[in-house]
Amino acid sequence: MTAEPTVVPEFDLLTTYLGLQLRSPLVASSGPLTARIDSLRALEQAGVAAVVLPSLFEEQIEHEDIQAARLGDLGSDSNPEATSYFPDLADFESVADRYLRHVEQAKKALSIPVVASLNGETAGGWVRYARLLELAGADAIELNLYGLAADLDVTGRDVEDEQVELVALVKASLSIPLAVKIGPHYSALGNQATRFIDAGADGLVLFNRFYQPDIDPKTRKVAPTLELSSSSELRLPLRWTAILSGRVEASLAVTTGVHTGADVARCLLAGADVAMMTSALLVNGPGHVAAVERELVEWAAESGFESVAQLKGSVSQRNVADPSAFERANYMSTLIGFTNSFH
């Protein structure tokens, strides 16, 4: 018996994210694979439509500045014959300089859009760095608002206002699109999302993964942990994408728990413009992008969809027969369904 030749169905993968035309909705999210030019090339060859570079961290720049100042001051003016003991650090390439060089190299190496990423929570120097990233050739900026309000005197509103102000400041300095990557922990996420968009965000990326530190009982020390995502984590961003889709004037990206073609389909059905992957690519390698695309195309053909544009948002809250399925009522019905299974 001979195998049937695989028929690749016609399916229009084109999508638009942050105003950028992408050949498909598959985007490599920021991670180790987007930190190196060779793996970026491999991702592009496998069919990824855009890449988000690893984040330039506010703390990294601050830490380096502090260390540089400390080194510069070390022993300075302690001896009449020497004013300092280290070479002038102005000659060294800073973490920000290296990041800018990475953006430039990525742009030279790739023909797909390159999104640079900033991770921080204070206005600080982000405006300047966002502008420098644009000059380095980034097609868009992803501003990663990763913060933990550990100060007991700071209110939720304070945090939200500060973040909105930061988005507005960064946006004002840019002529390229700005995406804002947020966490799910807002009292009224939908409202906060609209505030970000009103402040100038061209897109929202749902959601940040918060790596929770653990405590090692043996050493009695705080131990950082990093667990890769799984498909089950997709549901939270999926729900909020479905709620926001069609109701906000901004691109939507889902970024946690996208592992398979079916996961990408879920994101698009909920209303996402792109689905971003990191963990699945780290586990399976850059070539996994091609497999996911193939799964998506096959699923679309079986389901009768002809284009990404057609299926985008078709199961969003606005387009489903029972909008409450995405809200609290879903919680009740899930509980009831769960309880009924015992009868």
Binding site: N79, E81, A82, T83, S84, Y85, F86, P87
Partner: peptide, 8 residues
């Protein structure tokens, strides 16, 4: 391993 007195 470096000129110390005169500043490294």
């Amino acid at each position: 391993e470096v000129y110390s007195n005169t500043g490294g």
